[in-house]
Design a protein around this nucleic acid. Structure first.
Lengths: 203, 203
DNA sequence: AATAAAAATGAATCGTCATTCATTAATTCA
DNA sequence: TGAATTAATGAATGACGATTCATTTTTATT
């Protein structure tokens, strides 16, 4: 019987290696070495290199997705839901920096398999965000003059780029709590029902 | 005499090919075919595949950077400067979608050469944004309780993710003007001096 | 027009892995 | 314990593609 934990062992090793060298520069032999097994063993658990990458996404993003979904299901207020989404994302990225790096790079790849994953699983994850926005607009706590998809992208982009600093570490590195607090202040202030900003076109 | 325009021809072909297949899946022969020249000719103009990629960044991002810098230098008001930065970025990404795709994917790669470019040239570009924020805080038009680096990341992330939709085109695709307007509303509303948001921690 | 210099060509080279599979090791079970 | 089954190994295979360079073509010079 194949040890169930060897599957997880390989995924964990692969996540580290992909994060360090990127998917294309990572060799199967690198992953094998990191996992302290033979190259061939990997093929007893995965079909090929792409399969490993997709499995990483399935496992890690799947976990974040379902946890966030469950927590949100218990709430009514869109603002609380948004806070949960943000906290869950940032916590997960802080906890598993290797996965964060892999996701933030490889999920943008144009390969057919990645694209498919992005257009289904990942899109579903992001659409939670859009649903929260729409709900907030219905509840009249988020402004309705802005398009939910644009808000969704804005928030996700902000989350991703903010958490990316934890990996590249060239600039001042804020604690999780600080980052959450500041991001939430910034985003919510822009999102709440209020007087619209009026500003001239330059040039 | 080597035609100066062949250099540009290759860069343009490479940008298309990299955007479509990604740097690692792109073959030199693909670029040559796109440019309608022989494989070997490329090596009369570039040292290697990486050199092509870096040259693309140098040319395109360099142009955006210096144009934005010049325009900003003429202004005093941080809010106007911010608007210029945002408009310039989004206009450039809308105009050259292939480059946008290349930049948004390949600039995140972990290769030494890319990392170096990111940590110098690209960092300089982004730091314009940080400077604008700091100025706005000094001018007391942007709130000072938020960290400039976090704001910088938030804004850039929002810009990138918002403009990425123009390439992946799975969801509703807003005009440049709409996007600029909405993003600016959202970001500025969050950034302007105002009453802080108070919100409970969930769970 | 003939020669020289510069550019361009693309077939051949060479290194690099992903993947396979014959062999060995470990585990199960009778 | 000793087959029989399952898992693991890692050397060998084969495809792929970046880069080179001997040859051809184009352009400049006299």
């Amino acid at each position: 019987m194949k040890a169930a934990n060897k599957h997880a062992l390989i995924l964990s090793a692969a996540t580290k290696v992909f994060a360090k060298k990127g998917f294309f520069n990572a060799r199967i032999s690198d992953i094998a070495k990191e996992a302290k097994i033979a190259d061939g063993t990997i093929y007893l658990y995965f079909n090929n290199k792409h399969d490993i990458l997709i499995s990483i996404f399935d496992k890690e993003l799947g976990a974040i997705h379902s946890q966030t979904k469950d927590m949100i299901a218990k709430e009514n207020d869109a603002e609380i839901m948004l806070r949960i989404f943000i906290i869950n994302y940032l916590r997960a990225m802080k906890k598993n920096k290797s996965f964060a790096g892999v996701m933030q790079l490889e999920l943008r790849q144009t390969d057919k398999q990645i694209r498919e994953y992005r257009d289904t699983q990942f899109a579903a994850y992001l659409n939670m965000l859009a649903s929260i926005i729409v709900l907030g607009q219905k509840q009249n706590i988020f402004r309705s003059d802005l398009n939910p998809d644009i808000i969704k992208r804005t928030i996700y982009g902000a989350l991703e780029e903010t958490s990316r600093v934890w990996n590249i570490s060239l600039e001042s590195n804020y604690s999780l709590e600080d980052t959450i607090q500041q991001l939430f202040q910034l985003i919510l202030a822009g999102l709440r029902v209020q007087h619209p900003v009026i500003s001239e076109e330059p040039a």
